[in-house]
Computed example of a mutant assay.
Amino acid sequence: MVVRREPTLADVAEVAGVSLTTVSRVLNNRGYLSQATKDRVAQAIDQLNYRPNQVARALHGKSTSIIGVIVPTVALPFFGELAEEIENALAEHQYRMLVCNSMGRADREREYLDLLVSHRVDGIISGAHNDTLAEYQTVRMPLVTVDRDLSPTIPNVRCANEAAARDATRLLLERGARRPALLTSRTGPHNRREAGYRAVLAEAGIEPRIFTVDFHTPDAERARLIDAHLDAAAAQIDAVFATDDLSAAAVLDWAERNGRSVPHDFKVIGFDGTAAVRRALPGLATVQQPIADLARTAVDVLLSQINAHASAEDAPAAVVSPIELPGLLLAGTTT
């Protein structure tokens, strides 16, 4: 049986007829070498399809030019588009991306974080939605989050959630809603979209009504739980602000099955405004997150950290966190 394996530096040296040291000097462009020697090494590399070991490069203090990105799953429209935009932004700086899908599991996120650190990627962008993992506090490499508060010392790039939620809630009231409910993943002080909703209702003297369905609930169970919340409150609500578009789509489905006329006697607005959902539901009112700008800003902040580390500075320039970018209110036809 022929055992296939990746060619090593020693294989390149043997085929080129030179020493390991010479191959290393060619790869790292160090010292004087004749063009003939460089050509022989280059030909051997091409012949063997040799790929430099990025982990080994990192262990010798060299850049891997790889950034790790942790998201819940690229199957969700927001995170799929965010990952694509991060990849595009990184490519402009000759970096590549390694995507890790945590699937909403803290243990899997912990494993991926360990993998990225042990493989010495140049930096990490985390957008996963698990509760704060203590392991992040031990990471000693450049790190940026997207819409995730890990620590005051870790830059967090996000949409201006509270301001955008105020706009969304005001739109419901301006269009005639008097009993709007909030459908969100988790309630609490970290939920700035909830804060915006509550603030507008407080100004209007309206009692808030909040439904929660955890972000990581499986799709079939998620739809059942949303239906149960809406069924129980059907007589007490005339609108729903869902803090993501997929939940807003589930609300629209419930309204249709229950004979609610949207937007005449029932109004719905979502949040995210991804291209995928806009194509499927072009009339859905929503807040469009600036996904491309979020990705580019996260990459810029991360690369500034990487450059600071590479130049042996004590620390990168201080960043006021969170970095908030405005969302765009799209009134649609569902309000």
Rank of each mutant, 00 (worst) to 15 (best):
K62S: 13
K62N: 12
V262L: 14
G80S: 11
G80C: 11
E194M: 10
F215K: 03
E174R: 15
D39L: 05
V69I: 11
A285Y: 04
A42N: 09
H190P: 06
R96F: 11
A89W: 02
K62I: 04
A75H: 04
N307S: 12
T212I: 10
R192P: 05
H93R: 13
H60R: 15
P155Q: 14
R158N: 12
V139D: 05
S65P: 00
L294P: 10
V99I: 15
Y32G: 03
T334H: 01
T333S: 14
I45V: 15
Q137V: 01
P316D: 03
R4S: 15
A250D: 08
D300F: 02
E324S: 09
D11W: 03
A128C: 03
A58P: 05
G196E: 03
T243S: 11
G80K: 12
I125V: 04
A310N: 10
P77S: 11
M141V: 01
S118H: 07
P282L: 13
R140A: 15
P155Y: 13
V69C: 13
R278K: 14
R278N: 05
D314F: 12
L150I: 13
G270T: 09
I125S: 03
E109R: 13
D300Y: 01
V301M: 12
G31S: 06
V23A: 02
G283K: 00
R296F: 06
H93E: 07
P77V: 08
M1A: 11
M1T: 04
R148V: 07
A58S: 13
D244T: 11
E85I: 01
V144M: 08
V319I: 12
E162W: 02
L173H: 07
L20R: 09
L133I: 08
D245S: 09
D122L: 01
A163R: 12
P189A: 13
A13K: 06
A36C: 03
G68Y: 01
L330I: 13
H264S: 14
L303M: 14
H216K: 05
R166K: 15
A242W: 05
P290C: 12
A235S: 08
I66E: 04
D149M: 03
N161H: 10
R179Y: 02
E203Q: 06
R166D: 07
